[in-house]
């Protein structure tokens, strides 16, 4: 099987329990290059845990993950990152004592690109910051930028790594309406340029409009997957597993209502 046939990211039967909680319960997913796979589900559904497992931060109890046909589930997070899988955080932890551009340079230096010189890394970081429209804040200290800006910073850092696969954990949470629109266009553009994107997002409306396919997680299990229209039309699935209220209040809520900073679910492992 050649690498062009294998999906960019192939997740098979992944299981992860925390004590009695089955955070991820036998999830299988595939994301192809050029495609956005939306992953939705209520708080605690296991979305962040799934991203943690793919990025190597959390080890699954069972299951396999392949990146372009190569198994990665036994690799350390830095090995996964250097192969070309980059992620962003639901709750960003920037390197606080560094400037915005220095944060992004870390991605250029140590991600798949492995820039040899800091000068080259700086150039790439500038490009990545321009992509997320944060170029004007390049020299700002990280502790002084807004929540929305840290989200963009995190995405720029991931882009500077030159990944094939991007795992985006709620990239719009805490980002204002206008900035959200910029990021949405950027995500669509990145997919068009050939990246495989796994998009976890609370703002379900956004997921529905920009995903090629949508997977619904509930209590750790995947309960539906398909093109957005089909999944949305599957009233029974949506109602049974997400609740009528969830559809009314979340699905039909405008995108700019994103709950800034509100997330009861922790992120980033212990």
């Amino acid at each position: 099987m050649s690498a062009t046939v294998a999906p960019a990211l192939d997740v098979r039967g992944v299981v992860k329990g925390f004590g009695a909680v089955r955070a991820v319960d036998g999830v299988s997913l595939a994301v192809r290059s050029g495609e956005v796979l939306g992953v939705v589900g209520p708080n605690g559904a296991g979305k962040s845990t799934l991203v943690n497992i793919i990025s190597g931060l959390v080890k699954a109890d069972a299951g396999e993950i392949a990146y372009r046909g190569v198994p990665i589930h036994r690799l350390s997070p830095d090995e996964v990152a250097r192969l070309g899988v980059a992620r962003t955080f639901q709750i960003v932890k920037p390197l606080r004592d560094l400037s915005v551009i220095e944060n992004v340079m870390v991605g250029a230096l140590f991600g798949r690109r492995q820039c040899r010189s800091t000068r080259e890394a700086r150039r790439i970081a500038e490009e990545a910051l321009a992509q997320v429209q944060l170029g004007h804040r390049a020299e700002a200290e990280c502790r002084k930028i807004s929540t929305g800006e840290t989200k963009k910073l995190d995405l720029a850092r991931a882009l500077a790594m030159d990944p094939d696969v991007l795992l985006l954990d709620e990239p719009l949470a805490g980002v204002g309406a206008r900035e959200s629109q910029t990021l949405i266009e950027l995500i669509v553009g990145l997919a068009k340029s050939g990246k495989a994107i796994l998009l976890v997002e609370h703002v379900v409306r956004v997921v529905w409009t920009i995903s090629d396919r949508v997977a619904v997680l509930h209590h750790g299990a995947k309960i539906a997957e398909g093109p957005p229209k089909e999944v949305a039309a599957d009233d029974q699935v949506m109602a049974a597993y997400l609740g009528e209220r969830y559809i009314r209040e979340v699905l039909q809520r405008p995108a700019d209502d994103a709950e800034p900073g509100v997330s009861s679910d922790g992120d980033g492992g212990p």
Partner: peptide, 27 residues
């Protein structure tokens, strides 16, 4: 401040996990 290795050390000290996910071999 100027070398790859120095930046990796700083990044690891500041946020070990974030550094690792950016590809830094923290061990």
């Amino acid at each position: 401040s100027k070398t790859r290795l120095g930046i990796a050390i700083k990044a690891t000290a500041l946020e070990r996990e974030a550094a690792q996910l950016a590809g830094v071999d923290v061990k």
